[in-house]
């Protein structure tokens, strides 16, 4: 039997949670003794090479591509973990959730200076290349789209939280985080 496999992705997130994974410092060496990384920005593997034991999801779903990737993860990972507040509740991107999408676009791209522009956009047009994934009507917590097995809260979760959870899962122990490792900020 080979080593268990780990995959990670950042959906509508800021990569902060991935930074936190790296923040486990030299324990990363222990981690790669315990697991092989599969699809992940950390090793730049783009597609799943096969079934994976643990998937870490950073970020919620703000567009159809996020949904696609999340489902791909669910399909390929035995255990799927929401890592960080954005994956759990949409996080800061979800601030748009009670603003109609049209208004969000106007705020960002309109040349009507009552509304925007938030970006330099002399044409005033909303970017609309077929390659661009369509945005969802709101930002969805991952658990609304696929079943999630564990949640690691935090913005980002402390490196120790991620580490403890990984070790517990990889050594078949229950994930029982101590008080100081469950934090929402």
């Amino acid at each position: 039997m080979g080593k268990p496999k780990l995959a990670t992705t950042s959906l509508c997130g800021c990569f902060g949670c991935h930074m936190s994974v790296l923040d486990i410092d030299d324990r990363i060496l222990k981690l790669i003794e315990l697991v092989d990384f599969d699809k992940s920005p950390i090793d730049d593997i783009k597609e799943f090479t096969g079934p994976v034991d643990i998937g870490l999801i950073e970020g919620g779903c703000c567009n159809e591509e996020n949904v696609h990737v999340l489902k791909d993860f669910r399909k390929n990972c035995k255990i799927l973990i929401s890592v960080g507040d954005c994956a759990i509740d949409g996080g800061i991107p979800a601030l748009r959730n009670n603003i109609p999408l049209k208004e969000c676009f106007d705020e960002a791209y309109s040349t009507d200076n009552r509304l925007g522009p938030a970006v330099l956009n002399p044409s005033g047009k909303v970017p609309n290349d077929p390659e661009l994934p369509l945005l969802l009507d709101r930002v969805y917590p991952c658990s609304e789209i696929v079943k999630i097995d564990y949640h690691l809260p935090g913005c980002p979760p402390p490196a120790d939280t991620i580490w403890e959870a990984m070790v517990a899962l990889l050594t078949d122990k229950p994930v029982a985080l101590p008080y100081e490792l469950i934090k929402y900020d």
Binding site: N63, K102, F105, P130, L135, L136, D137
Partner: peptide, 11 residues
Amino acid sequence: AVGDAAAIAGR
């Protein structure tokens, strides 16, 4: 979920 965006993008 993509309905609004599809309508805005016209595709």
